[in-house]
Design a protein around this nucleic acid. Structure first.
Lengths: 202, 202
DNA sequence: GTCTATAAGGAGATAGAC
DNA sequence: GTCTATCTCCTTATAGAC
């Protein structure tokens, strides 16, 4: 019942490569060491990927194919759309939990590390990271204004203001690999949502 | 009248190394290429630094020994301390101009790229970057509250809220090496200061 | 301080047996 | 798919002449 031609090695290579890339950078990680960690020889890696660059590309393409923050909004918290403060706080809880998975943490680190290096094919940029969640919130704030729940203000400005602080909190808690500081991050996010609510309420 | 034993080569090496490190990362930059760009042989580099790691360390130590955002505050804009909105906007102008120099841009990129790699000796962290300017603003907001210019709120929360957005703007305009988008960044910062002022004024 | 020459090892990648 | 063996190139770093 395995996917055709797969022993799970491909996934192991991807997982290990992501871990190493996110710690030592693309250049700083060698096929040699990745193979060793996976438990195979270097040459076997080339049965799954034709080059080192293809491993990186696979990681990024697979990451980009996933959409999540929109799902969070359409989750249970939509019940609270008419109570903006609670809505924002619930959203923070959800998104920080999601951001705290090893996969998300490593991917974010990989993007931060590699965004400046010129590369063929795959584009890596911080903006693309910020954009997704910002767009969601631009829509949300637009709705809140429409239903007169908050002061009339440019929704894109609000989205920028609200999400920027979340990202800074995220960045600051990115260095601990184990993600043990979720509580601290959540507390900060909560205070932020509280402050922000006071700034935008009627 | 040169500093003893210096032909300027040491500085050239540092400048070139910073440029390369900030573009390709520490691992991705080779002594070979740095030497070539400087116009000397690889081996000559070792007359100035005993290892590649020492070049990185020198860059970071020299950067850390410089303090600037405090100077900005104590500059002319202090005249506007009693007009918080203008004060914030003037500060944004000054700090973004400063951040826009090639040196500052490269250093910031270097920190972003290398902060996760484990390293002996020199510590590189994003938080240390954020802290300096945040501390300045915690003090400033504290004063504004004392003189009843703004609503009474936790100054450290205010500092975090105000500076986080500035940093996100900074990050987003970090990819263009030439810094041609200063105007765009300034416009965003200005809108931010405007929004923020409405949020904190009495 | 800079050069030539060279050491010693690590890198990505391929050929061909099983 | 995985292995051994190997190629070729690049890496940091040192020795010693000028």
């Amino acid at each position: 019942m395995r996917p055709k031609g797969k022993t799970g090695t491909r996934k192991k290579i991807l997982d290990t490569a992501l871990e190493m890339f996110s710690l030592y950078g693309y250049k700083g990680s060698s096929i040699r060491l990745i193979a060793k960690k996976v438990g195979i020889r270097e040459s076997s890696v080339y049965s799954h990927f034709k080059s080192k660059a293809e491993i990186l590309n696979a990681l990024i393409t697979e990451y980009k194919s996933r959409k999540v923050s929109a799902e969070i909004i359409s989750d249970k918290i939509l019940d609270y759309i008419d109570k903006p403060e609670i809505f924002m706080k619930k959203f923070c809880e959800k998104i920080f939990e999601q951001w705290n998975t090893p996969y998300e943490r490593r991917m974010m680190r990989l993007f931060l590390i590699e965004q400046f290096a010129e590369r063929e094919g795959t584009e890596i940029s911080l903006t693309s990271f910020l954009k997704e969640i910002r767009d969601v919130w631009e829509f949300v704030f637009g709705q809140m204004i429409k239903f007169k729940l908050i002061k009339k203000t440019d929704p894109s400005l609000l989205a920028n203001e609200f999400t920027s602080v979340l990202f800074i909190i995220r960045f600051e808690y990115l260095t601990d690999e184990k993600g043990e500081n979720l509580d601290k991050a959540l507390k900060l996010a909560n205070k932020h949502a509280g402050f922000f609510w006071k700034a935008i309420r009627k």
